[in-house]
Nucleic acid binder design. Structure first.
Lengths: 209, 209
DNA sequence: GCCTAGACGCAACGCCTTTGCTTTAAGGTG
DNA sequence: CACCTTAAAGCAAAGGCGTTGCGTCTAGGC
């Protein structure tokens, strides 16, 4: 018995995967994401629908794959010479891309068709990797830097949470506030400036049911 | 021309909505979530499938509605006499419920069938409301308390982000660490303990609050 | 160069989804 | 209280998506 014919990444399978992925991207631009169907994608890709169903199982899983591909960062984060500037610039760009309508759609798709959480984990790994580069540079400069997980909790998580759960638009100032809240000792403004403390004596109603 | 017959929340429509919702819950327990179909739910609810399609448009949107209903907190957060204890207890319970397999499924469903983000916003509003109660109590006691948005960023968002994007399980210590990282000056442990600093030798003392 | 087995093409079936029309009843009006 | 308007549900049919069994092909190992 052979030991590793588990998967066949090369040859025909690879061609099919690529042609299906490009078909999805093309059709998303042409007819819109809502009009996508598996038979439509399969026809454009030159394969039969059953092939798509067997490989991906579902339109959502296919879209999730494509979304993760689109969410992969293409370039290393800019090196501006200091941790605060690097992190701020990265966070602002990240927020700008992710909070845009297409960005939100990709995030949703990536989370949607992902039973085992592999694709979502990949997205998180992308962000962690970029942050790791920035923190590594800072450490090489001798700067005092937090850990990757801390940056994920303090910068990435709040942005993603608001993108997913809040309808309100987000601006670069929010990203800036998160970074300075984490790094800056005294310059902790941003979101906090909007609502510094709880109002004493304000009535907080909760429906008791 | 009458001015407010825009929607009819009472009467037959209300009965249909309730019977469909209960049908979803019953069938989810009986046949499992994957085996749910609109015709199946409709038959159990005693309505025709077209009714479900017209009202909800999609099985996912229906499941999203049901999920939001299940994610609504039933009781006010416990009053333990101090902000730190109240917030910690709430965060631990929140994380416990949300990170469980059914909790994750509900969150996914709520996000899934939600084109305009209304249901997701409702989930966020539930958490904000609970936190508002806790902070209101703290303010009434004269305690120094952060704002609701700050707690959302520092406690809720990291937990939800990890639930959605990370496969690893989460324990109560993580929730505790987030709260003490926000409130406690010196007792900032939890997740940070796992990865306190960046790779290169240096001191990472993250500024608290 | 042969052999094994994973992957794709083909085709048919079942059920979900959609849609136009009809019927019911909720809620306002006189 | 009877009437009227109209939103919402019932009904039924057509179209298309999703699924599956079987045959064929090719990638990779021996």
């Amino acid at each position: 018995m052979s030991r590793k014919p588990m998967v066949r990444p090369g040859g025909r399978s690879a061609r099919v995967q690529q042609s299906v992925h490009t078909a999805v991207r093309e059709l998303m631009a042409e007819v819109g994401r809502d009009a996508l169907t598996v038979p439509l994608v399969a026809a454009r890709a030159g394969v039969t629908p059953s092939t798509v169903y067997r490989r991906w199982g579902d339109l959502q899983e296919l879209l999730s794959d494509v979304a993760v591909e689109r969410l992969r960062p293409e370039t290393a984060p800019a090196d501006l010479g200091a941790l605060a500037e690097d992190l701020t610039a990265w966070a602002e760009q990240f927020l700008d891309e992710m909070s845009s309508p297409p960005g939100r759609a990709y995030i949703r798709d990536a989370l949607l068709g992902d039973p085992d959480g592999t694709n979502a984990g990949q997205c998180s790994a992308y962000a962690a990797e970029q942050i790791g580069v920035i923190l590594g540079r800072a450490a090489a400069r001798g700067e005092d830097a937090p850990g990757v997980e801390t940056v994920m909790d303090r910068v990435v998580a709040p942005m993603m949470y608001r993108i997913l759960f809040r309808p309100e638009p987000l601006d670069a100032a929010y990203a800036h506030g998160l970074v300075s809240g984490l790094l800056g000792g005294t310059a902790a403004e941003g979101s906090r400036a909007r609502e510094p403390r709880a109002r004493v004596g304000h009535v907080t109603r909760v429906k008791q049911r």
